[in-house]
Every structure is written in structure tokens, then in C-alpha cells.
Design a binder for these strands. Structure first.
Length: 527
RNA sequence: GGCCCCGUCGUCUAGUCAGGCCUAGGACACCGGACUUUCGAUCCGGUAACAGGGGUUCAAAUCCCCUCGGGGUCACCA
């Protein structure tokens, strides 16, 4: 009865999201592993939409999910928008298939109409709990005669269809990650597989669909492991071959072993490692016309896209969450992962998402980008924040290019450019870092030095890095001071910030006029 | 609570199936040093783990047993 799928069949994997309006980063990892296994074997990756809950606004709920796949460059061979030979790919449109299978089970006596009311069942459960016994449903409806059932059905009595779990058996799976796992069917309650209105439930629909779509490998998160015996039983009852099951460890919240969940956002805000991501969202998103972390949080894939991570970085981090190539390879392109991906190197224990490691992957992959591409990724942030206009002249572009080049790898995530807004703001508009201003500009004697240096700045020719460098050093020598006594004051005066590119780069970038104006402004604020 | 899964540095992991090459390797983070006008980057160096207890064995992170700990799941959600 448990025919297994031939290993030389084309590998077919699937990811079956329900349209929730956002793509979960942990779900994305599961999807990625499915995609990787399909691509590694030159197989097919299928996207199927689990919308049995009848979505009201499907486009709105599905858009961000497909968007996440597109952003990361994970394509699907069958599914929404492109169809395929095993469609439709929306469960809401596959009702007939479920009905057929349901009839088959009903006729074979492997499923039955159950007329128990929810209240009855609740009472049964309560009783079992009180007696500290495992709840098993009572199967009252099994005693009904065919005539009774027909009559009650005709009368429109509320009912569901339950799968009849064969008791006293052992059901086992040989999971690619978990190994051999078995369950005693005598402990499993008959699951509802179909609601009164005819709509199927997950455990049933998923088996029908996976079988119909000839899925060879069901790669899903570990929380589904406990659903597996029921699904196995249904495969058997339907005489369908079982796919290879692959239960991945779930993705945990940073520095924890708890499943990453959208319901725990409040807790994550206080999580030391996670907090920075929320803070970044609250700082950056409002500037570029998006909702704060209330609407766009790091559990969502879209967060990473919007705040300016590279797909390569997110992909690299996700691939390393619960999978490794060997004892030292960390940096991998998608192609490299596809080439080397294997099921037997999947880790068994849950892995916490590590924001800092993600940043380190980002630093690496951003460093691989040609300068023009870096610029293209940065420009939208400047535009959305209103720091530059929609139309960019070639002069503007070249200025931005120079600023970005000077900033170099100080920009990790692309929205980091907003930390250096002063390069794009007018001389009286940019903000001074209060602490730095106090420490460097309002320091005893700093204003006098600054004023003196400004005079020389006004006449130095040419206004180039080397020349400025020389000017500064001559100045330091003439005044008999340490370079630190003046250079920090100048930096803060012209950029507003204690950190940034090399001082002379900053002066040169800004140009003489702006430097002088900014020093004037700083000087006038000292008293 | 029942069932099931998991347990190597702070984190992600290599090593576990086929015991010795492990005085446990790598990466991120952290600490220190070098470089530097700041920040960043880079380069060098460092701290840091086999959950505990019993066995088996010449030899155990690896095999067996027990304990402890963490987690998942127990719906007419998926």
C-alpha cells in the first residue's frame, strides 16, 4: 500500500503559503530550501496557494508574497500567474478534486460523517483532561445506520467529515532530516478533513494536492512533523505513493530557541539583537514615506528589501540557517548553494536568525557590487527622503557618486546613506550632532582656531585633497598645536557629525563655499 | 499534561551515522594590538563550547542507559 516514489523521478518540490499579506522570513527559508533542492536536481519548484480560508482580497494578500520571491530571484515553474500542467494552483479552485477524494474515502468506509456538536466535543475533551487521559473522539456517529445518516444529511443537520484513524497500528516516516519517527495510531483522534460546507481542511487538502501535483519531496518546517502521521494515513487510505518528507528545524528568534513568530513582536523589540533592526525601521522608514516598524518589521521579508539589504546577503544568511556546506565556507552565491545543496547536511536543531551575521554577509556582498550599481541602490533612498530631486543632472550624479565613493563601506545597508544626509542638505539646514558639537567646537579655544583656519581655507589653491592636507599640517605646525585640536572641530563644523570619511575628502566634496558657510554657521552658534 | 523533536563557544556551525587524525576546527560578535585626523575598513593576536551522570571500550563529542534542560504540537488555522 505504501508505494514509494521512484528516486529517478524528476524532483518536484513545493511551497504552499497562505495569503497572509506578508512573507515570513522563516517561511522564506523553507521556500528557499525547496527551491534549492529542485534546482540542485534540475527539478521543478511549485508554488501553491493555500487559500482554503477564502480570501476576500487575494491580490492584496498574495502580492507581497510573490514580491518577496521576485526580489530574491526565486522563480517558480508552476503556480500563480504562470499556471502549469497540474493546476489550478489555488486550493480554493480545487474543490472538485477534494470532493472526489472525499467520496472515495466515504465509500470505502475510511471516512465518516460526524454529527457531534462542537459543544459535545468540547465536553469530551474536558472530561478526558480531567481524567488525565489522552483525548480520543468518541465516534458516536459511527453507530448511525446508512438510513439515519441520509436522513440527517437531507435534513441539513450540521456535520463534518472525519477521517477514520485505524487504531492499534504504528505509523512511521523515514524523514530525511529526522530519521525514523513513529507514532501509535491509537493515540490519534479522527481528524476533521472536511467542513460542513464541503471545504477541505489542511491535512486533507495538502495530501490530495501533493499527490496530484506529484510532489516528490515535502520540505517543510518541523512544526508540521506532528501532522505527518495523519497525512501518512491519508496517503495510505487513498493508495497514493508517499513523498519523501524533509522536516526542517524552524527558524528561531535571535538568540533564542523559540519559533520566530509575528505574534511575539512586542517581545522582540526588547530582544538585544533584534532591537537594532526595529530601531533602524523606526528611524529610516518614516523618512522614506513608509510605516514604522509597526507596519514593516524584521519578521517580514519586505523589511529587508525596504531597508536596503541585498538579495545575495539575505539568501546567503538564509541558506546558512540550518544548513552548511562544510567546516569553513560561509560566503556563498546562490549558484554555489544550488550546486552544493544537499538534504543530508541539514541541521536538526532550530537556528536563531542572527542580525549581525546578516550585516556581515551584507558587507561582503555590497563590497562585490560595481560602483554604479551601489549608486543605483542608494539613489532611491535619497530621493524618497527628499534629499535630492527626482531628476538628477549629471553634475548632481557625479557629486553623489563621489560622496558614496568617499563613504565606501561605511554604508552597509543602503539606507545608511541617510545617516550622512548633511552632504545633501543646505548649509543652514543640516543638523549638528549635539554631543560632538559641544565637545569639539565649543571646546575652550576651538572657535579661535576654527576662525583662523577658515581664513586660510578661504584662499588655499587649489581646493584639492593634497593641498588641503598640506594646509592643515602647516597650520598645525605654525600654531604649535596637535592635529586633533583642530581637525575634529573642522569635521563637526562642516559635516555636523564626528564620524565619516576622511576630513580632506569631506572638505573637497563640499567645496570651498559650503565649507566656509558651514564654519561660519558653527562659529555663530558657539556663543 | 499526552505525543514528538532537539541539546558542541554568546550566536551560526564542523566533527556524531562508519569511536582514535579533536590538547574540539571555522565564521559572526566580543576583547586587545597595529594602522589612522574621526568613524569604518583592513591586518595580527586573544577569551570562549561537547547539558549532567552512569556504563561499554585500550580509546567516547561520537555507541548504550538514565536524568536534566529547551522547543514544537495537540482546532470545523495553515
Amino acid at each position: 500500500m505504501t508505494a514509494s516514489i521512484e528516486s529517478n523521478d524528476t524532483v518536484r518540490t513545493r511551497f504552499a503559503p497562505s495569503p497572509t499579506g506578508y512573507m515570513h522570513i522563516g517561511g522564506m527559508r523553507t521556500a528557499l530550501f525547496n527551491w534549492l533542492w529542485a534546482r540542485h536536481n534540475s527539478g521543478k519548484f511549485i508554488l501553491r496557494i493555500d487559500d482554503t480560508d477564502r480570501q476576500r482580497n487575494l491580490d492584496e494578500a498574495l502580492g507581497p508574497i510573490l514580491g518577496a520571491f521576485r526580489w530574491l530571484g526565486l522563480d517558480w515553474d508552476e503556480g500563480p500567474e504562470i499556471g502549469g500542467p497540474h493546476g489550478p494552483y489555488f486550493q480554493s479552485q480545487r474543490g472538485e478534486l477534494y470532493q472526489q477524494a472525499l467520496q472515495k474515502l466515504l465509500e470505502a468506509g475510511k471516512a465518516y460523517y460526524c454529527f457531534d456538536t462542537p459543544e459535545q466535543i468540547q465536553a469530551d475533551r474536558a472530561e478526558a483532561e480531567q481524567e488525565k487521559k489522552n483525548y480520543l473522539n468518541i465516534r458516536r456517529s459511527l453507530d448511525l445506520s446508512a438510513g439515519d445518516i441520509e436522513e440527517r444529511l437531507a435534513r441539513g443537520d450540521a456535520h463534518v467529515v472525519r477521517f477514520l484513524v485505524p487504531r492499534g497500528e504504528t505509523i512511521a516516516v523515514d524523514d530525511a532530516v529526522r530519521g525514523h519517527v513513529e507514532w501509535d495510531t491509537g493515540l490519534i483522534s479522527d481528524p476533521v478533513i472536511c467542513r460542513g460546507d464541503g471545504s477541505p481542511l489542511y491535512n486533507f487538502a495538502t495530501v490530495i494536492d501533493d499527490a496530484d501535483m506529484q510532489i516528490t519531496h515535502v520540505i517543510r518546517a518541523e512544526e508540521h512533523l506532528s501532522n505527518t502521521p495523519i497525512q501518512l494515513l491519508i496517503y495510505n487510505a487513498l493508495a497514493q505513493p508517499q513523498p519523501q518528507f524533509v522536516h526542517l528545524p524552524y527558524v528561531a528568534a535571535p538568540a533564542s530557541k523559540e519559533k520566530l513568530s509575528k505574534r511575539k513582536l512586542d517581545k522582540y523589540r526588547k530582544n538585544q539583537q533584534f532591537r537594532k533592526m526595529f530601531e533602524a525601521a523606526d528611524r529610516v522608514f518614516p523618512q522614506i514615506g513608509l510605516a514604522s516598524s509597526e507596519g514593516l518589521d524584521p519578521v517580514m521579508v519586505e523589511y529587508y528589501e525596504r531597508i536596503g539589504y541585498l538579495p545575495a546577503a539575505v539568501l546567503n544568511a538564509l541558506a546558512r540557517l540550518g544548513w552548511s556546506l562544510d567546516d569553513k565556507t560561509e560566503i556563498m552565491s546562490l549558484d554555489e548553494v544550488v550546486e552544493n545543496f544537499s538534504l543530508d547536511r541539514i541541521v536538526k536543531s532550530p537556528a536563531g536568525l542572527d542580525p549581525e551575521k546578516l550585516v556581515s554577509f551584507q558587507t561582503h556582498w555590497a563590497g562585490e557590487l560595481p560602483p554604479e550599481e551601489t549608486l543605483d541602490r542608494i539613489l532611491p533612498y535619497l530621493q524618497k527622503a527628499g534629499l535630492i530631486g527626482e531628476e538628477i543632472s549629471s553634475d548632481d550624479r557625479s557629486y553623489i557618486e563621489q560622496v558614496v565613493a568617499a563613504l565606501g563601506d561605511r554604508i552597509k545597508v543602503f539606507s545608511d546613506i541617510l545617516d550622512y544626509a548633511s552632504f545633501f542638505q543646505s548649509d543652514d539646514e543640516f543638523a549638528y550632532d549635539e554631543k560632538a558639537f559641544k565637545k569639539r567646537v565649543q571646546k575652550e579655544g576651538a572657535a579661535e582656531l576654527l576662525a583662523k583656519f577658515k581664513e586660510q581655507l578661504a584662499t588655499v589653491e587649489p581646493f584639492e585633497v593634497d593641498q588641503l592636507d598640506k594646509l592643515m599640517h602647516d597650520f598645525v605646525e605654525a600654531e604649535g598645536i596637535k592635529i586633533g585640536d583642530i581637525i575634529h572641530a573642522v569635521r563637526v563644523a562642516v559635516t555636523g557629525s564626528p564620524a565619516g570619511p576622511g576630513m580632506f575628502d569631506c572638505l573637497h566634496l563640499l567645496g570651498r563655499e559650503r565649507c566656509l558657510a558651514r564654519i561660519d554657521r558653527a562659529l555663530s552658534s558657539t556663543h
